[in-house]
């Protein structure tokens, strides 16, 4: 029996982004065509202030098929390395789906994983990814027979209205990552989650609730980041990069100013071409940041996710 340990790492990951990219103008036209609102001024704001240009849109594959596309390359690599998948965690931003349908059917049958314990968690909006990391950490801590966890996520906007938030644009995406006990590629050291349940109605909530969310937004982000650093006895200078949700560019620009950090302390390079990829942002950006050379071996970095009323932050080491 292996001894439980606090350490776990993101060992490998795979992201499926639909090849079709749609411009902000085109999305705005689709929303207006369906009776929604997306004014010229808003298009300007989304492009100039928020730095969105295009978002990926899935028109062919269902969510299970998107998950298959994300999982296949990763699980093949794990198989070749004889790395075990002992549990499966799924996390999504949206609650809108067929909850009695097994979304991972094809993956489970292809790789003989049907009997694996499965947990599908959510209701932290796009910060659910950090909730999943915390669940994974707890499972590693308490179950000595769990050595490897497959964490998957997939979301798509099934109607043009669902693609636009007041200050963000959502792109369809599926992702999979392999979490492994011990100190491997991207060690995960600390995880924090914060929820303000006032915003339970999300964007359908009362105007005053939405205003309050906007008022408290930057402070809540600042607090979760500071809390994570404080618990690790670290300062901003000790972390190479903050990898955040692609909620919009302005969020990170303003936060950098308030925290007296250089703007490039936040990784925002993918916002223009990918938009906000729900719970898959963090993994997509992590992959991109490593490919860009923005992270080097040994670097400490933070991942920060944002939902409407929910926030997640984790400290990692490459």
């Amino acid at each position: 029996m292996r001894t439980p340990t606090d350490d776990f790492s993101i060992h490998d990951l795979s992201v499926y982004v639909p090849p079709r990219r749609v411009s902000v103008e085109r999305l705005a036209a689709e929303i207006v065509q369906h009776g929604g609102v997306f004014s010229g001024e808003e298009i300007r704001r989304f492009k100039t202030d928020y730095r969105f240009s295009h978002v990926p849109v899935e028109r062919e594959r269902s969510l299970p098929e998107m998950l298959r596309e994300a999982c296949h390359p990763l699980v093949e690599r794990l198989r070749r390395q004889s790395l075990p998948i002992d549990r499966i965690l799924m996390v999504r931003t949206s609650e809108l789906s067929w909850h009695d349908e097994n979304m991972l059917r094809e993956v489970l049958h292809t790789y003989g994983l049907q009997e694996r314990p499965f947990h599908a968690i959510g209701q932290h909006n796009c910060a659910s990814v950090h909730l999943a990391l915390r669940m994974a950490r707890n499972l590693f801590r308490t179950d000595p027979y769990t050595s490897g966890i497959l964490l998957v996520s997939a979301d798509k906007a099934i109607h043009p209205f669902f693609r636009r938030l007041p200050d963000s644009l959502l792109g369809d995406c599926a992702s999979a990552c392999y979490l492994i006990r011990g100190r491997k590629l991207h060690r995960t050291l600390l995880i924090e989650n914060v929820v303000d349940p006032t915003f339970y109605d999300g964007i359908s909530g009362k105007a005053e609730d939405w205003k309050w969310f906007q008022t408290t937004y930057f402070f809540a982000l600042r607090q979760i980041i500071m809390t994570t650093l404080r618990k690790a006895s670290l300062a901003f200078d000790d972390v190479r990069l903050l990898i955040g949700s692609n909620v919009n560019y302005r969020t990170w620009q303003v936060l950098a100013e308030m925290l007296r950090l250089r703007p490039d302390k936040f990784y925002t390079e993918t916002i223009a071409e990918a938009g906000h990829l729900y719970c898959s942002d963090i993994l997509y950006n992590l992959q991109a940041a490593v490919a860009d050379g923005r992270l080097r071996k040994g670097d400490l970095y933070l991942t920060v996710s944002v939902g409407i009323g929910s926030y997640g932050c984790a400290l990692h080491q490459f």
Partner: peptide, 15 residues
């Protein structure tokens, strides 16, 4: 603090 007419935006609120 959450009143619609409370005269503080998010940047000032954080400050």
């Amino acid at each position: 603090l959450d009143a619609p007419d409370f005269p503080i935006d998010s940047v000032l609120f954080m400050k």
